[in-house]
Nucleic acid binder design. Sequence first.
DNA 1: ATACTATTTAATAGACCTATTAATACGCAA
DNA 2: TTGCGTATTAATAGGTCTATTAAATAGTAT
Lengths: 206, 206
Amino acid sequence: MIRTQNNTTEQCIMEAAEALFLDKGYARTSTIEIARVVGCNQALVHYYFRSKENLFKQVFENKIKSFCFSLLEISEEDLPFKEKLEKRIGNHFDMLKVNSKLPILLFNEVHTNQDLARKIYADVGHLPLSIIARMQSELDVEYESGRICKTDAASLLFSIFSLNVMTFIGSPLLRLFAENSKEPLDVILEQRRAENIRLIMNSLNP
Amino acid sequence: MIRTQNNTTEQCIMEAAEALFLDKGYARTSTIEIARVVGCNQALVHYYFRSKENLFKQVFENKIKSFCFSLLEISEEDLPFKEKLEKRIGNHFDMLKVNSKLPILLFNEVHTNQDLARKIYADVGHLPLSIIARMQSELDVEYESGRICKTDAASLLFSIFSLNVMTFIGSPLLRLFAENSKEPLDVILEQRRAENIRLIMNSLNP
DNA sequence: ATACTATTTAATAGACCTATTAATACGCAA
DNA sequence: TTGCGTATTAATAGGTCTATTAAATAGTAT
């Protein structure tokens, strides 16, 4: 058996699986192909992970949570609200840039695979409530002191989420839309990052 | 053979295929299942459409174009720019609501299926340029007369597209985010529609 | 009715895939 | 070295899927 890293076989399988799932989606990825990439026998994939579905879950379990709620995590820094929010939006964007193929994979699975959707829901369905509430109280304070307009936290967060995530889900279209500028994708992404922040901050004006 | 409509068999197959592809994605949908839904022999699917891929293309060919560029179509009404834009954003949203499962299907196929991506690109890749240019000139006129801030058409259009499309791709999350309100999804969608328009219009302020 | 065409069916070849099983190789402690 | 647990392999059962073929049926024009 040939391994590329000095990782354990189990780790190698997870890494190969992650790359393939992200590239081709769940349905189009086979355990045979995962094994071929790792350079091991296909039975090993089942030896370590029992089933393809289980492998998928193990690979993405943690990523799912951080993907869904990285935006909601309260940064501990003690900055004025607006600056803190700008930072959060940017951080969220950067996190997505590093995992740019994750959103389309997860949303596709959730949409086409009822079972997985329920599983994820059970896992993380309870999280947003408390975090949104905390955000709401921050927003209320700002509103009271006249620095922003009255704002619903859930709605705001979903808007940020939409703008940032769609930059990566829509990257094929983004290329088309930005064809005028002939810029490399990286530059376009930087522009989107700035524009997303601007859009959101603008929307808070009293 | 049992048909539900008095449509031709060919139409029935296309309708069943559309519904199944939208529900379960391309990879998880089999020609066998399509035939089962229609109530005909599986060979008929190939008799009329030769291959599953071909069937997919025939079903979604037109929808792909209207999906990608419905936003760009210039409405002929002769309204002030801002009112026209508000209308366009709303129309785009409404079109998506009627085809709410289309975005995730198309983006997933484009991301996981290189061939299809190239095919679509060849089909529609040339469209945006001229239309964005027209939009840009409208924006420039508004800018010159001081009614909006300097605005890049492609960027604006992509933002609108992001907010509207993500409402439907992200509907599972939207439910979570909006769990506080306990509103039915339809009400939440109306809120998003209004909020998307507000966000964009706000971003144009000089 | 006859002949010809279009539609539909049954049957199946040929791939490929998941998961399991039984056998083999390996590493290491006693 | 022997023995034992872990890792790995080959082989394959059993399933599903796409696409094709040849035969049967329905429809229509003459």
